[in-house]
Design a protein around this nucleic acid. Structure first.
Lengths: 241, 241
DNA sequence: ACAAAAGTGTTCAAATTACACCCATGG
DNA sequence: CCATGGGTGTAATTTGAACACTTTTGT
């Protein structure tokens, strides 16, 4: 208790320490994209001289009049031009020495965007897509943040239909399967995969075909959000451990 | 970008805003316990006059020389005397007006403790166990925090063997089943439940029986951590959505 | 015509569910 | 002896896994 008592700053008997307004908070957005069959992450060359030449995920300090969700939304809007992206809090990182300029606590967000989206204008050439598998060292603790978000991504795509955010609006079943396989590093049997996905009722037949492919074109589907919303509440109780 | 530019405090062209060390960070520990067949949460009467008479979960401000994990660990140690409890970060809450004294961002932790643990000494009568189902309004945004942690608990006990933290070291299968049922609000078939749990290999037969029960005594088991560690890595790929 | 992937069913194994009787203990 | 829950097995159903051939398109 000694540290706590040492920080008390009035006479009121308090059970806990008093606020110490000496922290800065930031958000870091791990933005995943999928291009040419490869899972990618959007990185920027670090601002700080201490990390010169190293890449980091997109972040910014939280402003005093915004919450974390808004801050991360702002970062994505400013960087990519997108405004309706999938964005979700993952974890908060708080190692004492994680930021050279002082005590900065950062909350990591995961975002899934469609790289081919027309709104997505990345002109800044200090901002680039990197294949996730090629990223080794990064500025700050961003490698840890990236790895954590990648684990979260792997888990979440199996629990919720968020993977569609990485594809264009209309996609073939092959696109979808290859994307699952790229992220999870496993291979699915094509027939079983199709059966399973159709069974969810989440695929809307767009009654269109691929074009320009050097083989028999596949049908195009889109994510049927309405159908998913209806089934969503289903209680899953497996005790799978 | 206007807000960001407004906060720049030097001449260096920066892509992002500069740190604003005007925040306080706290941790809030949602401590779950299980007693008399009821899931409970450990709450304390609020410190603040604004929330007089209302209950809140156990929290404290993060000190400038500790990270969030250490801060939450400290809170639990100081409050309950326990030192080796299950403790895991859940989510960070950051609404601008969540704390009346200023901009306090809090990170919620979930903890599972054994209420009957001998180390657990709760003398302070402003600190009490409440049945989770009875908690309605709370101080700050703590009801939201509690609800979030309860959802997380429900999900996690189905994915990882953390539920054993709520039971005494030796327990009967009945204890375990009732606890699952209490948390998930569903009922299991007793035979299937036993089959499933035995199949995990995580139950170690303690070759002891219950005593003092007004019916045929059941065998006592403990959680076989070693057996679990071996099986843990098994790749689960279900695409269950 | 060839290469490449689309589309499509069945069979087998495994997991899950539903279900009922006798047993041991305390009161 | 009665009430309460302990302990056990089997059959039916559902789900998941493995597997091959024909079709369509571009080159």
């Amino acid at each position: 208790m000694s540290e706590v008592n040492a920080l008390k700053n009035d006479d009121t008997p308090k059970r806990v320490g008093s606020p110490v307004f000496q922290f800065s908070n930031s958000v870091d957005c791990v933005i995943f994209g999928y291009d040419a069959g490869v899972l990618k992450v959007l990185l920027i060359k670090s601002d700080l001289p201490q990390f010169f030449g190293q890449w980091s995920v997109l972040g910014d300090h939280v402003l005093v009049d915004e919450d974390l969700d808004r801050a991360s939304y702002r970062v994505l809007r400013e960087r990519t031009g997108l405004t309706n992206m999938f964005l979700e809090q993952v974890k908060t990182f708080s190692a004492i020495d994680r930021h050279p300029n002082g005590r900065v606590i950062t909350t990591a967000y995961i975002s899934l965007v469609n790289v081919k989206d027309h709104q997505l204008n990345i002109l800044d050439n200090e901002l680039q897509w990197h294949p996730v598998a090629d990223v080794t060292t990064m500025a700050f603790d961003h490698k840890l943040i990236l790895d954590t978000c990648l684990s979260t991504l792997r888990k979440k795509i199996q629990e919720e239909p968020i993977i569609f955010n990485l594809l264009e609006k209309k996609f073939s079943l092959r696109d979808l399967q290859l994307l699952f396989e790229e992220i999870l590093h496993i291979e699915f049997d094509r027939r079983n995969f199709r059966k399973k996905l159709f069974a969810t009722g989440m695929l809307k037949d767009e009654h269109e075909m691929e074009s320009g492919v050097p083989h028999r074109p596949g049908k195009l589907y889109s994510f049927n959000k309405e159908a998913f919303e209806k089934v969503k509440g289903k209680s899953f109780v497996g005790l799978q451990f």
